[in-house]
Write a protein that binds this DNA or RNA. Structure first.
Lengths: 182, 182
DNA sequence: GGCATTGTAAAGTGATCGTTTTACATATCA
DNA sequence: TGATATGTAAAACGATCACTTTACAATGCC
């Protein structure tokens, strides 16, 4: 089960840099040193490997977010985690949305997976908003989600300070919501 | 000069749906009915066609934005224009950023073009913020830009109401900035 | 009427694609 | 010892890729 994880980890780096459709399996396998034989024994197809990479990517990011949940401001921690993530992985846009776009007509399974992942992410944000605000605010949660996705996208053509600006905007919206009702 | 425009318009639709690296030139030329010979006479390479499509796409979107500039709230008009655009073209994420991601290591010319386009877009937003606020506010302009990119990205895995939420968030941030100083 | 220009049709270029196959090495364990 | 599992190396599969070439039709301009 170790080689399988090596392949997924190595493939994630290749897909991150070259995209999905634009890179061949040989290049995807180069980081892990696995043979094409091993790839197809484990996954059956390149598309199935893409699915495994997306699941692993989402799982790791969710893990990171959960570690930072203990902090005082759960919403601000969201953006701090994003910034650290982008510093480590590079800012090339959300890998999940990039996969969705490249496979939007070619593989509906990938489209469905990303949709589920983003739905789950939105619920996590809504929970943090509710914990901070003392009440649920679906619209505010959506706005903070938009800021998060926007910062991720914008960072690919800007510097990482956009993440801090998104964080400040989220704080401002949260403050306005706290003032309006309790 | 007419066939060239036909090719660009048809190719834009194909790239929108299938991505850039994942679609062959035959499929890209199908909507315009042009032959590969004509493609290479006009553009010289597939990558050059991609550049032409991105330039045309940016030009058209900028045109749309300028038409709606006369309205009372120039910032809100930004998001109304985005919503109409997405209703017409479908919500699959910003084509410019998608191209940037797919070609981030393969074609630096495309990366540079998209960077310039987004810089120009940010300046346009900053000008609208200044016109609305009566003073320049660079940070607020960045936050509204993030909301715009976020709404574009989020709409690909949600419904178009996220654009309205982004618009409301922008209005809230603008209102807070108007209150703090004049 | 001659002559670029601009286009299509269609075959062919070598390279690369995702995937399969054959052959063989190593390790575990009954 | 011998079977099973798990891996690499490397060649080969047909399909498709971006791109080129040859051949020919229609257009408009001098």
């Amino acid at each position: 089960m170790n080689k399988r994880a090596d392949i997924v980890a190595g493939a994630a780096g290749a897909f991150e840099i070259d995209g999905f459709r634009g890179v061949g399996v040989d290049k995807v396998l180069a980081p892990s040193g696995a043979s094409t034989r091993t790839l197809y024994k484990h996954f059956g197809s390149k598309d199935a490997l893409v699915l495994a990479v997306l699941e692993e990517r989402h799982r790791r990011f969710r893990e990171r977010l959960e570690v930072a949940t203990g902090s005082a401001d759960a919403v601000a921690a969201l953006f701090d985690t994003l910034r650290h993530w982008l510093e480590e992985h590079g800012a090339r846009g959300c890998m999940l949305l990039r996969a969705r776009a490249e496979y939007s007509e070619a593989n509906e399974e990938i489209v469905a997976l990303v949709r589920r992942q983003k739905d789950e992410f939105r619920r996590m944000i809504a929970a943090r908003v509710e914990a901070t605000l003392g009440r649920s605010d679906h619209r505010l949660a959506t706005q903070i989600w938009i800021l998060f996705e926007g910062a991720t996208a914008a960072a690919s053509v800007s510097d990482l300070s956009v993440v801090d600006e998104a964080k400040a905007a989220a704080a401002s919206l949260l403050h306005a919501a706290q003032g309006s009702a309790s």
